[in-house]
Design a binder for these strands. Structure first.
Length: 195
DNA sequence: TGCCCGATTAACT
DNA sequence: GTTAATCGGGCAA
């Protein structure tokens, strides 16, 4: 049985936590699957929401690790992050893609497609499939409706530049499960192998 | 107050 | 390949 991820797991550098999340199981009310793509955002990173200090939107990032930071993207979608590092560091991991394993009929209905590869392959899609909204902003990740379990199998992880940014575009802080069909975008053929 | 633009997606040509 | 949808944050004035 997989071990639940603890506060201690998230109380480390966001750049250590992010690759360690690849292969972990994320369920919301028992719907979800295996994390296959994430991105790290550090508070010293110009691309991070926390870069310019706390606001009403990003205040959860400045709180303790192990909580969900949910924000609205492009006025339309929701995006889910896990807050990392000691309280106040304001760093988080963006959940970008999941390999769906649990509650597929529910996710198909919510997403309006039967194609498994389109259910959770993108940060907005993940939130629609798992029904994550601002209602989950600030929620603890070790309590219902969340269920977060560490990976048990060894996995091959690759890293590359993050997606959709205009700042710090060169930083290789996107992590993914090598050759997964459920990535929002493939990694370069020569992508750095992390583990 | 007004304006620009974004950690996106789907539906176009 | 391009673009509309849609809204809050951040900054200029």
């Amino acid at each position: 049985m997989n071990r639940p991820l603890t506060r201690a797991f998230f109380s480390r550098s966001v750049h250590e936590v992010a690759p360690d999340l690849i292969g972990a199981i994320l369920l919301v009310n028992d719907v979800g699957g295996r994390l296959v793509e994430v991105e790290a955002y550090h508070h010293t990173d110009p691309a991070a929401h926390s870069f310019r200090g706390p606001t009403a939107r990003n205040v959860v990032m400045f709180g303790p690790p192990g909580f969900a930071y949910v924000y609205r993207s492009y006025g339309i979608h929701w995006c889910l992050n896990f807050v990392c590092e000691p309280k106040g560091s304001a760093s988080a991991v963006l959940i970008r893609a999941i390999e769906p394993t649990n509650g597929l009929p529910i996710m198909r209905r919510r997403r309006g497609t039967a194609d498994e590869r389109l259910l959770c392959s993108g940060p907005g899609r993940v939130c629609e499939a798992l029904r994550i909204t601002h209602a989950q902003n600030g929620s603890a990740l070790n309590a219902p409706p969340f269920k977060l379990l560490a990976r048990t199998e060894s996995v091959e992880i690759v890293a590359g530049p993050r997606i959709g940014l205009t700042k710090a575009v060169d930083k290789p802080w996107r992590f993914g499960l090598k050759d997964s069909r459920f990535l929002s975008k493939p990694f370069a053929a020569d992508a750095i192998r992390v583990a």
